[in-house]
């Protein structure tokens, strides 16, 4: 469970990206964070594993406060996989090493074990034939699936996805979303920042609508797309359709 209380993030006096955000993510649910650009979605999700350090407030993961005092961030991050908009694969490692690397370094697996697990993971995202390819030899969709396999190999409790399909063209978007959709039924907690309204509608248990640095609304997809509670969310939906 991830519990966020009164979270603030300022870049300067005038640039306040998150303003008093409080929310609790329950285990095993899938959350889609949507909203216009500049609303603080990415900053929010990046605060959850401390890639972005909040200026105020508390983030609690499984009862442990992770943004105050001395915290073993490596341990916390092991529990939270992350998938990025630009894939961020290690360019100098092939697909299987991309997945195996953290298994060896962080989970201290033997090389043999790590590679076996990496190859199984890549097979699970439909890339069994690409294990020896380097990132530059892969298509965008394939890169993102390697990145997903890399995050999942660590067996995280939570998967954070920061606009996982925004850098992909439509057919590749479909293949990546299919993988994410299958994951949502596995008991993994998923938090996905996305502009894919259909994905949000079909896959998410809850939709978080963020606007101007606040969570303006949290609803089920049915509620959100048919009769959102707030005027600005209704406006956003209207503009989308």
């Amino acid at each position: 469970m991830i519990k966020v209380e009164h979270l603030y993030k300022d870049y300067s006096e005038s640039i306040k990206v998150l303003k008093d955000v409080s929310f609790t993510f329950e285990d095993g649910k899938t959350y889609a964070i949507i909203g216009s650009s500049g609303g603080g979605k990415s900053t929010f999700i990046r605060c959850l594993n401390m890639l972005e350090v909040p200026t105020g407030g508390v983030i609690e993961v499984d009862g442990e406060i992770i943004n105050q005092g001395k915290v073993n961030l490596s341990k916390v991050r092991e529990k939270m996989g992350m998938v990025f908009q630009n894939f961020n694969l290690f360019d100098h490692m092939d697909a299987k090493k991309n997945v195996a690397y953290a298994l060896m370094k962080v989970k201290k697996m033997s090389e043999k074990e790590a590679y076996e697990k990496a190859i199984r993971g890549l097979e699970n995202v439909g890339l069994g034939h690409r294990v020896d390819s380097y990132p530059h030899q892969l298509s965008g969709g394939e890169k993102q699936r390697v990145a997903i396999a890399r995050a999942l190999a660590m067996e995280p409790e939570v998967l954070l996805c920061d606009e996982p399909t925004s850098a992909l063209d439509p057919e590749m978007t479909t293949e990546v979303l299919k993988v994410l959709k299958n994951l949502s039924h596995t008991g993994l907690t998923m938090i996905v920042v996305t502009h894919e309204m259909n994905f949000a509608k079909e896959v998410a248990d809850y939709i978080l609508y963020m606007d101007k640095g606040e969570i303006a609304e949290c609803s089920t997809p049915e509620e959100f797309f048919s009769h959102a509670k707030t005027e600005r969310a209704r406006q956003f939906v209207a503009n989308m359709l």
């Binding site: 594993n49 961030l73 630009n86 290690f90």
Partner: peptide
């Protein structure tokens, strides 16, 4: 060096 790769490594818990 691509900052994204460094972030990805951090997010995996790499020291």
């Amino acid at each position: 060096i691509d900052k994204g790769q460094i972030e990805a490594a951090k997010a995996l818990g790499v020291m």
